[in-house]
């Protein structure tokens, strides 16, 4: 017979958490995250979000996004405790309005540039490639900026056991990874690109903190070059399906090298499973004309959780709150650029 360390209540052998107070019990065994989302409830939330968004001329979408995250975070658990999301719809909406103002200024500047070139006697056919290049370069520079901003916002609004996560990566560092990654990928005819992808993952992993505890990532992605080349060679005869196996290998590689303190992660995602998940989602969406979209969201998360295991423990007493402030601006920018920055 065991006893709960928190409330002293009696608990059966091999129990993960206490039946009396709900506190998790220490264990060294590998276990999966616990994703408890309910398809029906999530679908109703989704329906309510669409309805209110249309009724409010779209303004509610900021709250809609927040409600979805609150739902997903609070149903994603580990060792009997669930994550918590602290973002608000209002801060997201305000960031969008600020972004709208910034966008309007940028467009006015662009129009002014066009007029200036016109009055300087440069014909439009000569000016437009320069302007297009400028616009694309600006967007390219904004992408890493938005990714860092979105990560800061999301992690700062996420907590577990009352302690906030934070993201402490700098824009310049990610920009450096991007410049180096794009250049080397081009120079090596794409062979470098799996290393580039791992470098991005490593940047986000190493700059993520749970309280005062940093996440660590070991690996430079070189082991992924061969699987990448195999996928590339097989891409043509398999119509690109071979990339599911590469993506599975990448997911295993990245997540299995992630740890924080003595807590280790291990991913067992396989190409076949990933392929089945994607085909299933696409078929579901086609057959039901997209109504099953909320289920596909849950299916993806459940698949990820079922193939992820965690071993080891953190010394909860030693994890101290070390929250960092973050605004929602980067999040809004990532939305505007249509970037999907997964957690």
């Amino acid at each position: 017979m065991m006893f709960c360390q928190t409330c002293g209540g009696e608990v059966p052998e091999q129990a993960r958490f206490c039946g009396a107070c709900g506190a998790p019990l220490a264990t060294d065994a590998a276990r999966h995250p616990d994703f408890r989302a309910d398809g029906g409830a999530f679908f109703l939330l989704f329906l309510k979000n669409v309805l209110l968004t249309v009724l409010t001329l779209g303004i509610y979408s900021a709250w809609a996004k927040t409600r979805v995250r609150q739902y997903l975070w609070s149903h994603f658990g580990l060792d009997g405790e669930f994550f918590s999301y602290h973002g608000t719809g209002m801060e997201l909406l305000i960031s969008r309005l600020k972004l709208l103002a910034a966008g309007a200024v940028a467009i006015l500047a662009l129009v002014a540039a066009v007029f200036a070139l016109q009055s300087a006697g440069i014909p439009p056919e000569k000016a437009s490639p320069v302007i297009a290049l400028g616009v694309y370069a600006t967007i390219a520079l904004l992408v890493p900026f938005a990714m860092v901003g979105a990560a800061r916002y999301r992690l700062s609004r996420t907590s577990y056991r009352g302690v906030r996560f934070s993201f402490r990566g700098e824009y310049g560092a990610l920009l450096g990874i991007f410049v180096k990654g794009v250049l080397l990928s081009v120079l090596t005819l794409g062979i470098y690109s799996p290393v580039f992808l791992v470098n991005i993952f490593a940047f986000f992993a190493r700059n993520t903190f749970y309280g005062n505890e940093a996440f660590a990532f070991e690996g430079d992605g070189q082991e992924l070059i061969v699987p990448y080349l195999i996928a590339l060679v097989l891409a043509l005869p398999t119509l690109g399906i071979s990339f599911f196996w590469f993506n599975a290998a990448r997911t295993r590689y990245c997540w299995s090298r992630l740890r924080t303190g003595s807590l280790r992660l291990q991913s067992e995602v396989q190409g076949g499973g990933l392929f089945g998940l994607t085909v299933g989602n696409i078929l579901l969406m086609i057959v039901t004309l997209g109504i099953t979209y909320p289920w596909t969201v849950l299916r993806n998360i459940r698949f990820f959780a079922d193939h992820l295991s965690v071993s080891g423990d953190l010394n909860w007493e030693a994890i101290r709150q070390e929250a960092r402030p973050a605004t929602a601006f980067g999040e809004g920018l990532a939305d505007a650029l249509d970037l999907d920055v997964g957690l």
Binding site: I59, L97, D335
Partner: peptide, 10 residues
């Protein structure tokens, strides 16, 4: 689009 961004459905 500035005011309305979010999941794919919105």
């Amino acid at each position: 689009t500035a005011v309305v961004t979010g999941g794919a459905e919105i």
